[in-house]
């Protein structure tokens, strides 16, 4: 992988204050990593390692206490449409239909209704949701909500898609389907993806590379390459793939701190 660096995180220190107890927590300290252009990068680590905080810093929701976060060499100061975010809680607007939710980014940019509906329908097609276009989010299952959220992010044509444990709230069966769909969708719409998860299996299944963080405050413990071809990534067969099993077991050991990097 010799692609150019898309996002650069250098010596990042993030803190948050526990309002109830007045205690200051250090989420990450001295965290340095690169996200390469058009790669699918997964970040795994035990809970409390600051992986979601890292995503918030890149998205521009939280300001670093130290270090820098930059994209294409420019520091990230606030949220922006160049970095689309898919949240664990879906974050669909309950008063808008699925179609209106998916077209929201285009609406904010002033695209006319007919055109944004057409674009939204195209991305609903990609995410197998055309039948739900006129429904409201509360009428959808968790899996459908997350498909709609992915469609909303992609329809807005971001340069980077940040995904914060997006499949953690859906049931196990649906999760497998969504992971396979994401592999397919990403194949058809290449963009830079940063995918946060606590599931090692998920990370190995989806990622080109995996960054393993230490328990909080989070630092990079190891970087694992996943050279498994995209067309082999199906749940029906991948567990029989010795490469997958080996990478999964090694990564799991790294996350649990059993193996030195």
């Amino acid at each position: 992988m010799s692609a150019k660096t898309k996002i650069s995180v250098v010596d990042l220190r993030m803190e948050y204050v526990d309002e109830n107890r007045g205690i200051r927590h250090i989420a990450t300290d001295g965290l340095t990593l690169d996200v390469k252009e058009n790669e699918f990068l997964c970040v795994v680590g035990p809970s409390g390692c600051g992986k979601s905080t890292l995503l918030s810093a890149i998205a521009g929701f939280l300001k670093p206490r130290g270090g820098t976060v930059s994209m294409d060499g420019r520091p990230i100061l606030e949220p922006g449409a160049d970095r689309g975010v898919v949240f664990q809680e879906y974050a669909l607007l309950p008063w808008k239909t699925v179609l209106e939710n998916v077209g929201l980014g285009l609406k904010l940019r002033g695209v006319a209704k007919a055109e944004r509906d057409a674009v939204a329908m195209r991305f609903l097609d990609i995410t197998n949701l055309t039948h739900a276009a006129e429904k409201y989010p509360h009428e959808l299952s968790g899996g459908m909500k997350q498909r709609a959220a992915v469609a909303r992010t992609l329809a807005n044509k971001p340069e980077v898609m940040l995904m914060d444990e997006p499949f953690a709230a859906v049931d196990a069966q649906t999760r497998l389907t969504l992971q396979e769909e994401l592999v397919r969708i990403w194949d058809e719409n290449r963009l830079t993806v940063l995918f946060i998860t606590h599931s090692v299996e998920e990370a190995v299944f989806l990622g080109d590379r995996i960054i393993v963080l230490t328990p909080g405050p989070g630092k990079v413990r190891a970087v694992v390459d996943v050279p498994i071809p995209r067309d082999q990534r199906h749940w029906a067969t991948i567990n029989a793939n010795p490469q997958f099993v080996a990478i999964r077991d090694r990564t799991l050991a790294l996350v649990r701190g059993l193996e030195a990097a």
Partner: peptide, 19 residues
């Protein structure tokens, strides 16, 4: 999370209030 989502889709402050 809804506020963050809107900002990440490119909303200005005024659009955030409206949408």
């Amino acid at each position: 999370v809804l506020i963050n989502a809107a900002y990440s889709l490119g909303a200005t402050r005024l659009q955030l209030i409206q949408e």
